[in-house]
């Protein structure tokens, strides 16, 4: 039985004639301890998928289910790592994690709690920066902190909403490795949103493309049966990796082209204009002053 499920989910903003359909009849099933990457173009409703999974918004039709039951309001069982970190700027690294830990594990003794917090700070390699404020840190460090905060809640499902898209390429690859390492150490269900095919192939077990919006839905799935641990350096020469990457890329290009074709308004009238050629206009006199 899948742990997370999209059952014919539709969602739109606005009401009546102004309604903008973001998702229509989306179906998805995520198995336990699976790493699923949802890949899509910008504006295709990727963040909406995370908000729906997290329970921050409710679907208009259909249901989002966890363990076969509709999910309730947001909670620490579905940890979200937000695209823009969502750290509390007045709290330190320690304080940000402490707030979450205190709330999720109220029964912990103070020493246990300290150990727990330190464990997650160490896990994301923020040791030594415990008392720094978010604004004193780089984007990569902030995203690590955001990850540590979410992991410290020990969620059943980890929802990553484009966690790396705001980072530079180098920091990005470092954090890709780190997230993969964490996931391999401590297997749990992960749904990651991304717009980077390489990132998806490198990290995920399965890639689910999202068709371009409006009225987006999940497209053809790609399994990634590559061996773990995956090594970024050698992977580039792995024929299977190249194969999957090409397949996914081609598919994405195709659905994009298709959506553009579909989006062309059929009844658009083109004006009848005949271009004027300069060659056949000898009557025009050009005077140079």
């Amino acid at each position: 039985m899948p742990i997370l499920e999209f059952d014919n989910v539709s969602f739109g903003h606005g009401i009546g004639s102004d309604k903008y359909e973001v998702l229509t009849d989306a179906n998805l099933a995520v198995e336990e301890n699976e790493f699923v990457a949802i890949i899509g173009f910008s504006g295709s409703g990727k963040s909406t998928v995370v908000s729906l999974l997290g329970g921050l918004i409710e679907p208009d039709q259909g249901a989002v289910k966890m363990h076969g039951k509709p999910i309730g309001p947001p909670g620490p069982d579905r940890g979200i790592v937000f695209q823009n970190y969502s750290l509390l700027p007045w709290l330190s690294v320690h304080g940000n994690i402490e707030l979450a830990v205190k709330q999720v594990f109220p029964g912990m003794s103070p020493t246990q709690r300290e150990d727990h917090i330190q464990h997650y700070i160490d896990l994301v390699s923020l040791t030594g920066a415990e008392w720094k404020k978010p604004n004193e840190m780089s984007g990569g460090m902030r995203q690590r902190l955001s990850l540590a905060r979410t992991l410290s809640m020990q969620p059943e499902v980890l929802l990553l909403d484009e966690p790396l898209s705001a980072l530079d390429a180098i920091t990005r690859s470092v954090l890709q490795d780190e997230i993969t390492r964490l996931w391999e150490q401590d297997k749990r269900t992960v749904v990651m949103i991304t717009n980077d095919v390489d990132e998806a192939v490198l990290m995920a077990d399965r890639i689910v493309p999202l068709t371009p919006g409006p009225r987006a839905t999940f497209g053809k799935e790609f399994a990634v049966p590559l061996e773990r641990p995956r090594d970024r350096a050698t992977l580039n020469f792995n024929p299977e990796f190249k194969h999957i990457r090409n397949d996914v890329t081609r598919y994405m290009m195709d659905i994009n082209a298709e959506s553009k074709r579909l989006n062309v308004a059929g009844n658009l009238k083109l004006p009848q204009i005949q271009p004027i050629s300069l060659d056949v206009a000898p009557n025009i006199e050009i005077s140079v002053v």
Binding site: F82, S86, L88, L99, Q103
Partner: peptide
């Protein structure tokens, strides 16, 4: 709004 989302996830 992001801070409020954090509050919702933590069920404050």
């Amino acid at each position: 709004k992001d801070h409020l989302n954090v509050a919702r996830v933590l069920r404050l």
